[in-house]
Simulated assay, not measured.
Amino acid sequence: MEKQIYIKKGNGETELFSFEKLKNSLRSSGASNEIADSIVDKIQRDIYDGMASNAIYKKAFGLLKQKNKISASRYSLKRAIFDLGPTGFPFERLIGALLKEKGFETKVGVILKGECVTHEIDVLAEKDEYVYAIECKFHTDPRNTSNVRVPLYINSRFLDIQEQWNKDPKNKTHLKQGWLVTNTRFTEDAINYAKCVGLTLLSWDYPSNNGLKANIDTYALYPITTLTTLSKREKHELIAHDIILVKELLNATDKMKSIGLSDSKIQKVKNEVINLCRINFS
């Protein structure tokens, strides 16, 4: 019979731990049923009331890494996005790359004049003569959520630049919509307000089955912080060299050498990238 264990979440609250949810997350990372079952069995033997959720994650990640490094990379995606910090720029680059995969032309960090004041737009995306202004709210703490005040503020900024953009005869495109993207979650009020005013929201798991995680998996836009073959120091040195996505490492041999990686380690890193992104060169 499955244990009834209450664990401690990062925000200090306790909740009943779901072994089924753990198994599903392992399976969604690409782990086989056999590997997922063995990890769940191990966790069941070691878990106890009051155990921190982060400690459970680390234990499951460590066990998965021993059995399947590629699955471990995918399993670590949520944590890996937090590790892109402390600044929000790498996250903005990630969102720009995602929109590019969806057929948009994108620019990151654009200054636009509004009707009242000037605004810095995190990502400006264009497709089919329509332009979209995307604001990215990056958090390093998973406990931080975006409440209704955030879309209220973002929508007011959007309306200011939309007024100015669409009346400017030099602009041949139409500024259609504002977007708000976060790596955590939105409150229910934030979602309801955004629906009401026509603001598109994207978070870790919203919209359902089309959130950040689903899109990153679909387009294999994994950040370099997911890789198991790089140390934390190496990852952040590469981020400082503006390498954000694992795919970029395939053409970044010189930059990897510049931070001290040997030829053999560079090949290991590239092999992990190829397997993680399911790249086929045939």
Score class of each variant (00 low, 15 high):
7 I>N: 08
8 K>S: 12
11 N>Y: 15
20 E>K: 10
20 E>F: 09
26 L>E: 11
30 G>I: 09
35 I>N: 04
35 I>V: 14
36 A>V: 03
41 D>R: 13
42 K>H: 14
43 I>C: 04
47 I>D: 04
51 M>N: 07
51 M>V: 12
54 N>A: 13
60 A>E: 09
62 G>A: 03
65 K>G: 04
73 S>D: 03
73 S>V: 00
75 Y>S: 03
81 I>P: 05
83 D>Q: 09
84 L>A: 11
84 L>I: 11
85 G>M: 03
86 P>S: 08
89 F>C: 05
91 F>C: 12
99 L>M: 11
100 K>N: 13
101 E>F: 00
105 E>P: 00
110 V>Q: 09
111 I>K: 07
112 L>T: 00
122 D>N: 14
126 E>Q: 07
130 Y>M: 13
132 Y>Q: 03
134 I>V: 15
138 F>E: 10
144 N>M: 13
145 T>P: 03
146 S>T: 10
147 N>I: 05
152 L>C: 07
156 S>P: 10
161 I>F: 00
165 W>M: 06
167 K>N: 10
172 K>F: 08
177 Q>A: 09
180 L>F: 04
181 V>G: 03
188 E>I: 12
190 A>D: 06
195 K>E: 11
196 C>V: 09
199 L>R: 01
199 L>I: 07
204 W>E: 15
207 P>A: 10
208 S>P: 02
211 G>N: 10
214 A>G: 06
215 N>T: 12
217 D>K: 15
221 L>P: 09
225 T>K: 01
231 S>Q: 01
232 K>I: 14
237 E>N: 07
241 H>S: 11
250 L>D: 08
251 N>M: 08
253 T>S: 11
255 K>A: 08
256 M>K: 02
256 M>T: 01
256 M>R: 00
265 K>E: 13
267 Q>K: 14
267 Q>F: 09
275 N>L: 12
277 C>V: 12
277 C>S: 14
281 F>W: 13
282 S>N: 14
